[in-house]
Simulated scan of single mutants.
Amino acid sequence: MSRTLSPLRRAVMGVSDKEATAFSRGNSPAWAHLEVAVRAAVGGYHTVLDGSRFDELVPRLDRTPLELRGYAYEGAAMGLTGLDCFLPGKSRFRAFIQGPGEPHIYMAHIGAGEALARLRRKPEPFLTRLDDPVLRWLVLDGYGFHEGFFKTKRHVDEQRVPAHLSAFGRRVFDQGVGRSIWFTRGADPASMARAIAAFPADRHADLWLGVGVACGYVGGVDRATVRDVRKLAGENATQLAVGTAFVAKGRLRAGNPMPHTDLACDVLCGGSTGAGAASIVDDVWQDLPDSPNSPAYDALQQRIAARLISTAPPTDALTARGESTNGNQP
């Protein structure tokens, strides 16, 4: 990509710092942590607009601190998908996930969905071009996150869902919206619970699953906060844990496991470490059925839930570890 075109592409496709951080409502450590994560993703996106050759792009992405590197790759995938939408030729996104972006393939699919939302492209036709029957659905997660994050009034406050999505597409869209609520509510358990309670009850499970994804991947909160999240999820606590276990696998695959992921898995996934939760995902990711009526991603999430339920410690064991189910332990 010509450097002389970089300012033009930034002007047309870029995300200003004001737009990226408009969600923030304070200067607490939690808000600051979330802003850093968003800026890392936007930075990766702009890196592509400045130059999309992988030999130049990847070293620049890898300068991002390890904890934040997945966001940079997410943003890069967003930028590459955006270029694919405008410029003909071989898919830059596919080349990225089959090449240097492969370790960050979870975040890359999310970034692709964010690009499609930003460019107002329908996401499900894009899925037919992707090979992995599970990970391709993360495009819908990214699509939902973008809409919930940048169009909060429409998709969170008014609970609107794009009419063009399939039944399962709507569910994964909600998972992305749930993840966006972690950001727009500053990872505050009570505020997130109020936002989700306003949605129709049949959407709660997927929204809480998205919160679990954010809790496991983004972090920025202490043990007491994670316990409160689990308490407020109520009957959806297993779905919360499914999201956390899934992203523990994503972080492990990317080579950037973090202590906050271990913390979330310990509290939400029955005392498991991040590696232990990831092993559950590995165990059930075998011979998944895949059809329009039974997408592989849905089957995987159901299997993770069943395994988590079957291996959950009894209530008395939680109490002995100081993990009281009333969520009020310090």
Score class of each variant (00 low, 15 high):
residue 2 S to Y: 05
residue 4 T to C: 00
residue 11 A to C: 03
residue 11 A to V: 02
residue 15 V to H: 08
residue 20 A to L: 06
residue 30 A to F: 02
residue 31 W to M: 11
residue 32 A to F: 04
residue 35 E to K: 15
residue 36 V to H: 15
residue 36 V to F: 11
residue 40 A to Y: 14
residue 42 V to Y: 12
residue 44 G to Q: 10
residue 54 F to H: 08
residue 54 F to N: 02
residue 55 D to T: 11
residue 56 E to D: 13
residue 58 V to E: 12
residue 65 P to V: 13
residue 68 L to N: 05
residue 86 F to S: 05
residue 90 K to Y: 00
residue 90 K to C: 04
residue 92 R to T: 02
residue 92 R to L: 15
residue 95 A to R: 15
residue 98 Q to Y: 08
residue 99 G to C: 09
residue 105 I to E: 00
residue 108 A to W: 06
residue 109 H to K: 05
residue 113 G to Y: 08
residue 113 G to T: 10
residue 122 K to H: 06
residue 122 K to A: 14
residue 125 P to A: 04
residue 126 F to M: 10
residue 127 L to Q: 08
residue 128 T to V: 10
residue 131 D to C: 04
residue 134 V to F: 10
residue 135 L to H: 09
residue 140 L to S: 08
residue 141 D to W: 06
residue 142 G to A: 06
residue 144 G to D: 09
residue 144 G to E: 08
residue 145 F to C: 09
residue 153 K to C: 04
residue 153 K to D: 12
residue 153 K to R: 15
residue 154 R to G: 03
residue 154 R to Q: 12
residue 155 H to E: 05
residue 156 V to W: 00
residue 159 Q to P: 00
residue 160 R to Y: 00
residue 162 P to H: 01
residue 172 V to N: 03
residue 173 F to I: 02
residue 175 Q to A: 14
residue 177 V to D: 07
residue 182 W to S: 03
residue 184 T to Y: 04
residue 189 P to H: 03
residue 190 A to M: 08
residue 191 S to T: 14
residue 196 I to Q: 06
residue 201 A to I: 08
residue 203 R to S: 13
residue 204 H to G: 08
residue 208 W to Y: 13
residue 211 V to D: 01
residue 220 G to H: 05
residue 221 V to R: 01
residue 223 R to C: 08
residue 226 V to E: 09
residue 233 A to K: 02
residue 236 N to M: 06
residue 238 T to W: 05
residue 238 T to H: 01
residue 239 Q to G: 13
residue 241 A to Y: 05
residue 241 A to G: 06
residue 246 F to W: 12
residue 246 F to C: 02
residue 252 L to A: 14
residue 254 A to R: 00
residue 255 G to I: 13
residue 262 D to L: 11
residue 266 D to S: 13
residue 270 G to F: 07
residue 271 G to A: 10
residue 276 G to D: 07
residue 276 G to P: 10
residue 278 A to T: 07
residue 278 A to G: 14
residue 284 V to I: 09
residue 284 V to T: 09
residue 285 W to C: 06
residue 286 Q to C: 09
residue 287 D to C: 00
residue 288 L to Y: 07
residue 290 D to V: 01
residue 293 N to V: 08
residue 296 A to I: 02
residue 300 L to G: 06
residue 301 Q to K: 10
residue 308 L to G: 11
residue 309 I to M: 13
residue 317 A to K: 07
residue 319 T to D: 12
residue 319 T to L: 15
residue 322 G to K: 08
residue 327 G to R: 06
residue 330 P to A: 15
